[in-house]
Design a protein around this nucleic acid. Structure first.
Lengths: 239, 239
DNA sequence: AAGTGGTCTAGACCACTTC
DNA sequence: AAGTGGTCTAGACCACTTC
């Protein structure tokens, strides 16, 4: 394991144990260098991680502070971490939930102009179109509309769509999913969606539009997911 | 200006100009070290920034890739960047919009138990409570409910609440706002909110719950903002 | 003046991809 | 084997806070 990850783990556990409650501060970088037997830059990289995780705040000239309330972060419980990028299966399976999909459409078509542009496709190129309702422990969790260029993701089959598209892309095709650009907004269900999700026509939905990228910068998916009430999305922002 | 920021700027401009379109790749780190006359770690830090901004993707062993479509990022136009943390005033003023607030409540009270806990307050400590509707170019943009501990933010006045609370905290108190933890969900307006925002009772709202932190890790604000239709929230996530 | 974190260097060594 | 990005070091110098 990389040294800076060891430091991240050690400090995170310390924070959760409440080791730094007395002062509210972590030891200085110099002290941590000695403690862990590593160089300054390694401690700094670990702190970059902890800051991203929302656990600490740094102030030049005065020290590194544990965020009040960071010990028991709500973020870890049932929320979607916007930092993460793992697909529904990984997220829910990790919580021990049974994940299923109902596939309403799986076809090949030329995508709408906006989608083609966002995916860097020519107007006459083909893409899969997928509509799925995702269930976790038999509860509808989202209805999801996805376009994926056939050029980028060859030979996608119904069995993959019913199971996990991400697993097919990564494990079978050997591609690496690297990042996603997401836009979140509120919306209302269509009549069809009311039926498929089992919600009322006035139930507000959280809509997440996503462009997924591989590690070579190629977009491999455009999707819109609409989530019934109760679904939350968590983010940490820094200046 | 710091060297790595110069590199960020240079590469970003290059990406927007389309300089790297031919290969889709940035020059190698070694080449950029020569070009900019800086060390490897400085180039790496610049690339960390560009990756956070959603402009590039890196692949160990093969190179650094410009994200397809990154040239004209939708993100920069009218969207809320979840990475940012600047308050409504700065966001909208930057776009040349006239920003106003209608204050419906400004009082001092003991906050609900959940809020007190999140703000690290004792049950009998006082906090300001503020309800404001924010307008940009005369259009209601959000209704916002805020609690701030009086211990952390002393002597807040109506004039600050009508103008910009962030400006008071930073410019007058000399405190530094460092980060925010945000949870996003969908909701519906109350009857009162329909009137104050001028929306119908079935209009879905985007609700953003936020805890704001100073650079010493102390939470200074808990707020819930509810935004009418059209409001969007943008995020970039990496694995 | 002393102590804190931030930037930057030159270079070693490593993990991974490509040929 | 050659080329790519990633981690890590020891140390210089700087910006900022605290006393």
């Amino acid at each position: 394991m990389m040294k800076y990850k060891e430091v991240v783990k050690g400090l995170q556990e310390g924070i959760e144990r409440g080791d730094f409650k007395a002062t509210g501060q972590l030891p200085t970088i110099a002290a941590l260098c000695k403690d862990y037997g590593v160089s300054k830059i390694t401690i700094k990289k670990a702190m970059d991680d902890l800051e991203q995780m929302g656990l600490i705040s740094r102030r030049r000239g005065s020290g590194t502070f544990v965020k009040n309330g960071a010990a028991k972060p709500v973020a870890r419980s049932g929320l979607e971490m916007s930092q993460q990028m793992s697909g529904f299966n990984a997220e829910h399976s990790a919580r021990g939930e049974k994940v299923e999909s109902v596939v309403y459409d799986f076809s090949v078509t030329t995508p709408p102009e906006k989608v083609a542009r966002l995916l860097g496709m020519e107007p006459d190129e083909f893409a899969y179109h997928i509509c799925r309702v995702r269930l976790a422990d038999e509860v509808a969790y989202a209805i999801e509309y996805t376009y994926m260029p056939i050029k980028v993701i060859p030979d996608l089959r119904l069995k993959h769509v019913e199971a996990s598209i991400y697993a097919y892309v990564e494990d079978e095709l050997g591609l690496k999913i690297a990042s996603a650009h997401r836009t979140v907004r509120a919306s209302l269900p269509t009549a069809e969606e009311c039926e498929r999700l089992g919600v009322g026509q006035h139930e507000p939905l959280l809509e997440v539009e996503q462009i997924g990228y591989l590690d070579d910068g190629i977009p491999f998916e455009f999707s819109v997911s609409r989530h019934p009430h109760g679904y939350e999305f968590f983010t940490i922002s820094t200046r």
